Simulated scan of single mutants.
Amino acid sequence: MNAIQNFLASRPDSADTLEGIHNWWIDWSGMPESIIITEQALHQLKEQGVIRSVVIGNREIWRRV
């Protein structure tokens, strides 16, 4: 959650898919964790009102509120 919030603090207009966030927004310092970790973080941040998601076509896009 911190990595996502830090990324958005420095790039507030960013928006991406779960996969994009997992692969490009988070510095895993080696082998990445499971994508499920990123998905759970996104949902927690959404519950806290920090980010929101929109569906465009068949893709869910995440961005700052």
Rank of each mutant, 00 (worst) to 15 (best):
K46T: 00
V50H: 05
I37E: 08
T17K: 02
S14Y: 02
I51F: 04
I37F: 06
N58Q: 11
A15S: 09
T38N: 07
H43M: 11
L45S: 01
P12Y: 03
L18F: 01
E39C: 11
Q48I: 03
I35N: 11
G30S: 03
T38M: 03
S10Q: 10
D27E: 13
V50S: 00
Q44E: 15
W25K: 00
L42W: 00
D27G: 10
T17E: 01
D13S: 08
Q40I: 14
N23F: 07
W24T: 14
I37Q: 08
I56P: 03
I21K: 01
W25Q: 10
S14Q: 02
E39D: 15
H43K: 15
S10E: 14
R11N: 15
W25E: 03
E47K: 13
V50N: 04
E39K: 13
G49E: 06
N23R: 14
P12D: 02
W24F: 15
R52P: 04
H22F: 04
G20P: 00
S53K: 12
I26K: 06
L18T: 07
Q40T: 15
E47I: 12
K46G: 01
Q44F: 15
R59H: 11
R59Y: 10
W24P: 07
T17H: 02
I36Q: 04
I26S: 08
I36T: 12
W24L: 15
E47S: 12
Q48D: 13
W25S: 06
A9P: 05
K46N: 05
V55S: 00
E47R: 12
A15T: 09
N58H: 07
D27C: 11
S34F: 15
E33Y: 10
H43E: 14
V55R: 05
R11H: 14
P12K: 00
G20D: 02
I36W: 01
T17R: 01
D13Q: 05
G20T: 04
I35M: 13
A15N: 08
W28D: 11
D27W: 10
V55D: 05
V55W: 06
R52K: 09
I56C: 05
Q40E: 14
W24V: 12
D13F: 08
I56W: 10
R52D: 08
I35G: 07
Q48R: 10
I56A: 10
L42K: 00
R11T: 14
D13P: 02
W28H: 12
P32D: 04
S14H: 06
R11P: 04
P12W: 01
N23V: 11
I37H: 10
